[in-house]
Every structure is written in C-alpha cells, then in structure tokens.
Design a protein around this nucleic acid. Sequence first.
DNA 1: TGCCGTTATAGTTTTTGAAACATAACGGAG
DNA 2: CTCCGTTATGTTTCAAAAACTATAACGGCA
Lengths: 124, 124
Amino acid sequence: MVKKLTKTPGSALRLRVHLDAEAFLGPGKADLLEGIAATGSIAAGGRRLGMSYKRAWLLVETLNGYFAEPLVTAATGGKAGGGAQLTRLGQEVLARYRAMLAASEAACAKDIAALRKLRAKKTR
Amino acid sequence: MVKKLTKTPGSALRLRVHLDAEAFLGPGKADLLEGIAATGSIAAGGRRLGMSYKRAWLLVETLNGYFAEPLVTAATGGKAGGGAQLTRLGQEVLARYRAMLAASEAACAKDIAALRKLRAKKTR
DNA sequence: TGCCGTTATAGTTTTTGAAACATAACGGAG
DNA sequence: CTCCGTTATGTTTCAAAAACTATAACGGCA
C-alpha cells in the first residue's frame, strides 16, 4: 500500500467539536477544508488525505449542510476541469477549529507528557 | 429503546489523547474508568454507559495493557459476586484525562460559542 | 469536436466494529 | 452444596462505515 498521510500528523490530540446533536466537526472535516484551501479542489484535497473523491465530496456536502451558507463553493469544467474554494465562512470555521486544537494542545501538554512517562517501560 | 446515558453528557468536546500509535484514551475508556470507580464493578460501570459486559471488560483489558501496571484490578466470587477497583495508577490516568478535558473546554469555549452562533439559523 | 480533470451522484461490495449469545469458574452466604 | 452476581472468554450475527465502481455533465483548450 502506498504511504498515506496520517490525519493531523504531529498532534497527540484528536478534537471533535459538537455544535449540537447532529452537527460536529472533527479532524477529518477540518483537514479536508485545509486541503481544499491549499489545492483549490475537492478531489486533490481529498487525495492527499488518502480519501476517495466520493468521501471528500460527501464530507463537503455535510459541512455545507451544517450552516445557512456553504463553507465550500465549487465549479465544474474549465481549464483545470473545475475547482473548489473555501468561502469566508469556511475559512473562519477552519481557523476556529485550528485555534481550538492549538489551545487544547497547549492546555494538555503537561498531562500528556506525564501520561507518556507513566507508559514509558511498555513501549513493546 | 430505553434511554441510555449519552457519553460525557454536558460536554461539547470529545477528546482523544494519543499516547502513541497504538495507545489512546478517549471518552469511552475514561467514562468507564469513572463508572468502575463509582460502582466497584466492571459490569455495573459498563451497564450505566449502556455497554455490554464484554465490551467493558475488553476496554479494561486494553487499558491495562497500555501500561506496565494495571489501571483496574478485579476479583471473582465473594459476597457481591466479585468486583473491580481502580489502582492508584488508574486514578491518576482518569484524573489527568478529566483535567485535560476541563482545560480544553475552557480553552475552546469562546470559539465553540462563536461557531454555534454562526450556525444559529439552521437549527432545522 | 474530442480531450482532460473535475464536480456531482448512484449503486454495489467489502471491511470493520459492535452487539448478541453462550459458557465456565469463582467464592461467600444462606 | 446450591444460589447469586461477577469476572473471564470464545463464537456468531448484524449493522454501520468505508471503499470501490460506474456514469454523466461541465467548460476551457487544442
């Protein structure tokens, strides 16, 4: 199997933010938003996370359904076949998720270090 | 269906702490540890989370395997049929997880509120 | 007009995780 | 010496998630 990027590589934390019962935001959606912003396409953004286009597209649809306005807008055809971008709202949501993750990591750093130390011997 | 406790009821955050590639601690294991501490048994602790004994026991086994010393000790037979308790290590791990969750919630509160506000209209 | 990469969907299959079911043993109490 | 609730495990079933496959349409461009 080809090596695929692990989601949110450097982080020891996985954060899932529940907006309410049926809307939540986790690493998968956040990373995808980031990928779309970086590549300008749903397909390419998903590819570098090792996910199929269908899965990526489904996540985008879900995300867009969460809010009154879409987070991602897309167009078909054209020079590059089409493309997608984050709306202002999409950028804000992504930025806030990143901010929360960073803040949480900072807040948990010392406990994580302590736990890892406790586990030390049993690296197996 | 009978109403079952939702995991970590009041929280908008779900935190999964990765000690390394094959060891991580999320809401399920943490809540179970708490249940065991509160009830004195794996079975009862799991029941109130709506999980089968087998699942609860499996989680305990996994947890115990993470560290050099067990987090939970259990005994069979006896007055109440048996029972289980958290070791000192188990208590510490649980306390640290709770601390991390609380710290993260505090750190994320304002972003979560902002996101919820953005979502406002679309309560569906 | 035909090509290309992408968006947009539908349908099917495969994989995986959870649940359900089934037993055995333990040990104090009645 | 039987009963009870629990620990401890194996096996089987089922459902949900993810992966895979298949199309169609779009719109610049050569």
